[in-house]
Design a protein around this nucleic acid. Structure first.
Length: 371
RNA sequence: GGUGGGGUUCCCGAGUGGCCAAAGGGAACAGACUGUAAAUCUGUCGUCGUGAGACUUCGGUGGUUCAAAUCCACCCCCCACCA
């Protein structure tokens, strides 16, 4: 077994890549989609569901797990893998995104990000160093640096200041971790808002540092889709070729395929699980709002091309009934399906890259989600 | 038979003279959701009309009034208690 962090590029098709990333809990085949399990649980499904769906790696969140149940408590339980009974790789986000999504409860300074807990209002300071410690306690395979996610609409001065601060956060996180390095990987997060020169500066600065991988943060934060794609295609090629590239928080099935097209290897998004709970299912035939009346007497499977338990065993009519009735099984089956589908999109993309048919796969996905 | 309470738009339920096509909730029908404070949120929800607006509606009938879901009379149902 290669040492954690080993990244092997296996195939390329245009800018799209197929690779393997070695971690302490196993090998990740990319492109990969990573289901989000913020508090140490992918909402609605159990680890055996995730394995059945083909999940290689899941996310956890530093901010949430630090607040509850506490990273030290998790450490005493033997780390997040053992605590949550998930033996495959885990990536933890740093909490930087929460400074953005919980901006009314947070304050960003040179020292770090101060939060008021959304649970009880208590104050907490996250520093680049402290966030590494928390993630070491969780023992995540891939740790993310504390970053400042620049909100859409921020002006140039604000963005520039954030990019500079982000650069200093990166240096502190890396220096701190290097002094106590174990088998965990630490990824840098590039920012830059919606100014290309700031994006370029952030990438140039971070990628000069010895991170194990690099991500693009701060996209899909409310900007128009065209703008997101413009920045994605501009930034992805600027990231190092020989390290994993991670597009944070993105996206729809088509976004993911376009991300791969731009040269991204890793994706995470709450969309498959959140939308599953809200009745929107992604299928090989496009988006299905399972609550719609038209499915009330539809005896066919949700997605005839999907091998998941929900599609194998149940009809659209039954899935609609479960959703409308707010049955707990609805959340599980819908989540299981969407996760299975997202994972299959990444897996098919990988196969397409390996066989040199990625362009055809991409246009197939574009036609499915054209409307 | 007596006394008291009640019948409101698909359901529950506010409303006791004009600001009422009628609060609120539910149901129904659509839509949103992108490093999860989200099993959440938004819209529509009498009919016709793009719209202004017009028309119909608060158990029934008749009446009072400029104006009635709201007041009066009678009638029809329902509930509780007493005989």
């Amino acid at each position: 077994m290669e040492k954690p962090g080993t990244f092997i590029l296996e195939a390329r098709d245009g800018a799209a890549r197929a690779a393997t990333l070695h971690t302490a809990h196993g090998i990740i085949k990319t492109p990969v989609f990573m289901p989000v399990g913020t508090v140490g649980s992918v909402k609605g499904v159990a680890p055996d569901d995730l394995e059945a769906a083909g999940a290689q790696i899941i996310l956890g969140n530093t901010y949430h797990l630090y607040l509850r149940p506490g990273d030290e408590l998790v450490a005493r339980r033997g780390g997040l893998h053992k605590f949550a009974s998930w033996n495959r790789p885990i990536l933890t986000d740093s909490g930087g995104y929460q400074a953005f999504s919980l901006s009314k409860l947070s304050h960003i300074s040179e020292e770090g990000i101060e939060f008021r807990s959304h649970l009880d209002g208590s104050k907490h300071l996250f520093t680049p160093e402290g966030v590494v410690d928390i993630q070491l306690n969780l023992n995540s395979d891939i740790m993310m640096m504390l970053d400042e996610c620049v909100p859409y609409g921020s002006d140039y001065e604000y963005t520039k200041r954030a990019v500079d601060l982000n650069f200093r956060y990166a240096g502190r996180a890396l220096e701190y971790y290097t002094a106590r390095r174990r088998g965990n990987l630490l990824f840098g997060i590039t920012q830059g808002g919606f100014f290309k020169d700031q994006r370029e500066k952030s990438i140039e600065g971070l990628c000069g540092m010895d991170f194990d991988g690099f991500s693009i943060g701060g996209l899909s934060v409310g900007e128009p889709k065209d703008e997101m794609m413009d920045f994605l295609y501009h930034c992805a090629p600027l990231l190092p070729q020989d390290k994993p590239r991670y597009l944070m928080g993105v996206g729809t099935p088509l976004d993911i395929v376009k991300g791969i097209d731009a040269g991204i290897d890793m994706f995470d998004c709450v969309l498959p699980t959140r939308n599953a709970r809200n009745g929107t299912l992604f299928t090989s035939l496009g988006k299905v709002n399972i609550k719609r009346r038209e499915y009330a007497e539809d005896d066919g499977p949700l997605d005839p091309a999907c091998p998941c338990y929900a599609c194998r065993e149940f009809s659209r009519a039954y899935l609609r009934h479960l959703y409308v009735s707010k049955e707990l099984l609805s959340y599980r089956l819908n989540s299981l399906h969407n996760i299975t589908y997202f994972l299959s999109v990444a897996r098919r993309a990988r196969e397409a890259v390996q066989t040199g048919t990625f362009a055809a796969f991409k246009s197939e996905m574009e036609s499915i989600y054209s409307n």
